[in-house]
Design a protein around this nucleic acid. Structure first.
Lengths: 198, 198
DNA sequence: ACATCTGATATATAATTGTATATAAAAAAT
DNA sequence: ATTTTTTATATACAATTATATATCAGATGT
């Protein structure tokens, strides 16, 4: 739509994808219909301020008016507090995404908030590494375990167990990659899909 | 209108008033009708993103999406780069406002950009002081001179002269107020009008 | 008293939004 | 493998709402 709105709209879309949320999931959190989010992200509409604020807040973002003089400083801070994930093999990336989704749906049900926070930290730590495909099977197992937590009798224990598994994995990977140089995920030179972030 | 939009809308209004712009003046700069600005500032509409961006930019503000973790830091920077004017006697405040208005309208006509910048700096420096009413007459004279610049033959000289006058005034005032303690402008305990900033 | 500038408002038009549904892609199951 | 089910995004249409144009009433200053 309007040329000036593009950067804001793009940042919304990137933020949602960085959290590996679906439009529908964001829709529920923000109270904005999924169809509307679709139109917004494709920049087909000039959305209203209330919608923008609702969506931004659902993504843990705040809308701010920054003096022109201060924008470089603000951008710098924003970059620092935004986590940049390293590239991952697609299969690995999916497993990580699914774990984050499972964690979020857990948060809406379970009361084990502190444990969920711990798990989130462990997962974030794992997310800083480029993970070799060797670990795919192990990660998949952890993911399945995480997705079962909901149905578990003792959710608290199930979460802490998962956290331990993740932490263990992370340490293994970190160690192996520092010892021997691993090849980095493929990173195709071009992609037929729209690319996530430059 | 919507309760969440209020803070943003308020900041827009404050920014406009801080620059002592009229809604019409902002309207021309932003390309948004004055009537619309009126409705926006009274929070009677849920404005569209393109309007918000246009208005913000006209006020030298940038719309930014800030991670929740970073908002305190951003607010801190924003406060630092936003100039807090000291209270002024109403008559003095009006003179200062009129000079800023004159300067802006000058910018749209004259090519003396560097000189205008100099003048703006001098004016900003004067604006940091709480000015005693003793100087009203002098300030008024300068203001009238500034308002005549448009019609002047040699605009460059007229501007630099005005800058000198302002700087001179500023130094006088700064000296007199440090030497002998002056009483600060009235600051009524309550006001029947809406108040500018807390 | 008059001219000018301020912010507010009525109306027509154009656009977003909500509801519901469609299409496409991915996962699961047989 | 192929069919079925689920999930993810896109779109059609009606209702609601913002926006532009024009005009208004009030304040301010000359």
């Amino acid at each position: 739509m309007s040329y000036e709105t593009q950067p804001i709209v793009d940042r919304i879309k990137e933020a949602r994808q960085a959290k590996s949320m679906s439009q529908r999931e964001l829709s529920k959190l923000a109270g904005v219909p999924q169809g509307q989010i679709s139109r917004i992200e494709s920049n087909a509409v000039d959305l209203r301020l209330s919608s923008l604020i609702a969506i931004a807040n659902a993504l843990d973002l705040e809308l701010a008016l920054v003096p022109r003089k201060a924008i470089t400083a603000v951008q710098s801070i924003t970059r620092q507090t935004t986590d940049h994930r390293p590239p991952q093999y697609p299969a690995i990336g999916k497993e990580l995404s699914h774990m984050q989704m499972a964690l979020r749906s857990l948060r809406t049900q379970s009361l084990a908030i502190a444990q969920a926070d711990e798990f989130q930290k462990a997962l974030a730590s794992l997310n800083t590494l480029s993970i070799p495909t060797d670990y795919l099977a192990q990660i998949r197992n952890v993911r399945k375990a995480v997705e079962q937590i909901t149905k578990s009798q003792n959710q608290m224990k199930a979460i802490t167990d998962a956290t331990k598994a993740i932490t263990y994995l992370r340490n293994n990977i970190a160690h192996s990659t520092t010892t021997q140089i691993r090849n980095v995920p493929p990173k195709p030179a071009y992609s037929l899909e729209e690319d996530d972030d430059a």
